[in-house]
């Protein structure tokens, strides 16, 4: 007794599941996220530079913001000294979003891409949408 067809069926299921990510995408193309920085505020800047380097911000912005909330609310410290010595107001709404006033085009572009859903916007207000949630 071999139960051959059962084994082959099982293996077929196995192969289908394991190769699902490949088979689902075969022949298709994917769009890379392109966060836009073409807001008026940024256009005004001479050197288009965030408070820290681009790579650093891409990797670490969440930790930065997470530490900011404690600095501001709990310690009353509201001046961020960047690596290049420049000073910034510690505020998501009043610093970050002043430049990046295009949340959909900037934040969401990548967040949706990697399926990250930060809860910042439960309280903090996205710029310009101005309306209700």
């Amino acid at each position: 007794m071999y139960d051959g067809w059962k084994i082959i069926l099982g293996l077929a299921v196995f192969v289908v599941i394991v190769t699902l990510p490949f088979t689902m995408s075969v022949g298709k193309d994917y769009v890379k996220p392109e966060p836009k920085i073409d807001t008026p505020e940024i256009q005004k800047m001479e050197k288009k530079q965030c408070i820290e380097s681009k790579q650093y911000m891409r990797e670490t912005h969440i930790k930065l913001l997470y530490s900011w909330k404690d600095y501001a609310t709990r310690e009353g410290k509201r001046v961020y000294i960047a690596s290049d010595g420049k000073q910034y107001n510690v505020s998501l709404q009043n610093t970050c979003m002043k430049c990046h006033s295009n949340k959909e085009k900037f934040c969401d572009e990548c967040h949706n891409y990697v399926n990250v859903k930060p809860y910042c916007w439960d309280c903090h207000i996205e710029p310009k949408v101005g309306g209700l949630k």
Binding site: S25, P33, R58, C110
Partner: peptide, 14 residues
């Protein structure tokens, strides 16, 4: 950099 990593992994999948 999660975005870059996803680019890599998506590249693998596609």
């Amino acid at each position: 950099d999660v975005t870059a990593i996803k680019e890599l992994t998506l590249g693998l999948a596609y």
